[in-house]
Write a protein that binds this DNA or RNA. Structure first.
Lengths: 220, 220
DNA sequence: GGATGTGAAGTATTTCACAGCC
DNA sequence: GGCTGTGAAATACTTCACATCC
């Protein structure tokens, strides 16, 4: 489908997903340069900090426009603004957390989301004992209230930290309620329909992909 | 370097990194099939569960050998054993945690590492106030003891959960003490020398790579 | 002089498609 | 008949290299 080779509509430039996945890293570095008072940066310098080739950075950025000045490099502030706009992180996002067990609590208390514009504004659980409780400043709602709260608070992003056994159904419910992006901490890869985004945080998978290399290799 | 096209040594089959990164996911699914009492599985069925093409699974596995039976599929138990062996997760790994602040404590108390053979056996911090404390059953050591403990307990994997300002130096110290794989939770990408593996857990980057898609798109 | 932006070249990865085997 | 394993084809991604501009 959508694979007719000569379709003229096909020439709408699709940005490769791998390119999009690198932009937040560029954002990170630029934020740090900004804090350090650096005004201008070259793709060469960015590449050193990110451990990628300068050509890749220039190519990546070229999907979105021409942000640099020949002979000079990139204005840190300008590039920062453009990338924020492209990624859609120039505004605040309201985020719901589902599951306030040990992991969910750690997430709610993690101070790293707010500075980057992700506001955890609602918490949910299925366990009657914790519903109504205060967790990190948020009142825990019943999942029955999900649709209402998601609508009222204009939530399109959710973080899922429920047991594996409930993950897929929670994800389905979130999608049904209009959530369009999900960050999943359960060690399972849930299925979502086209148009909904999901990313999985799974430290064990990361560890297991490293043991391959340190296991047999003498040094590589 | 290593790029001479005709070098005969070049033909030692290098397994693409992207292939290795998928193996732990195969392991996950197979473990679940095993628990469910499924004995045999086809690449078709695996593909459906993993949302990848059957061809990719067969190709990935073919880098390591021929594990299937034509006309039948793969023995779940056999494939599980082979993958465990390939990934080096058929034995236990001792793991150190550096940084026992809020995040570090959550990691130490996370129950998901042990069942997969990663044993958190030592915790470290630089803060005098927490050194000597008990955190999740582990006594917090000073970083001064790192080399000794890493050697004594045969630790080659470390989890880093220290502030950004200290991350690079902690990583450097770990590498200097012989640690060969690092799971980093700080929002920075530390540099490590060739031969040392590092993976980064950065939920904000994940969120930012999703907002790109839910921001402008009507549906994609 | 120095750095960007970008077609073209070069690699890497995925998918196809089918021979071979159970 | 059904499914694996795998060269070959197709696609995706990265890097080169240079015209272009500040």
């Amino acid at each position: 489908m959508a694979g007719v080779p000569f379709s003229p509509e096909d020439s709408r430039d699709e940005v490769p997903e791998v390119v999009v996945s690198r932009l937040p890293q560029y954002l990170r570095i630029l934020n740090r340069l900004m804090e350090d008072g650096i005004m201008v940066v070259s793709s060469q310098q960015l590449g050193e900090k990110l451990q990628v080739t300068p050509a890749q950075i220039r190519k990546d950025l070229s999907y979105f426009g021409r942000f640099g000045k020949q002979g000079r490099g990139y204005s840190v502030r300008d590039l920062l603004d453009r990338l924020r706009q492209i990624l859609g992180v120039n505004a605040y996002w309201n985020v719901a957390v589902v599951g306030v067990g040990r992991l969910g609590r750690a997430i709610v208390n993690y101070p790293g989301f707010n500075p980057d514009g992700f506001h955890l504004v609602a918490a949910f659980d299925i366990n009657e004992d914790v519903i109504g409780q205060d967790v990190g400043g948020l009142t825990v709602h019943s999942l029955d209230d999900l649709r209402r709260v998601v609508t009222e608070r204009n939530i399109s992003i959710a973080i899922v930290a429920v047991p594996v056994s409930h993950t897929q159904e929670v994800v389905d419910l979130l999608v049904a309620c209009g959530v369009r992006a999900i960050l999943n901490y359960a060690p399972i890869i849930p299925h979502v329909r086209e148009g909904v985004r999901i990313r999985n945080i799974d430290p064990v998978l990361s560890l297991q992909s490293m043991t391959y290399y340190i296991n047999s290799s003498v040094e590589e």
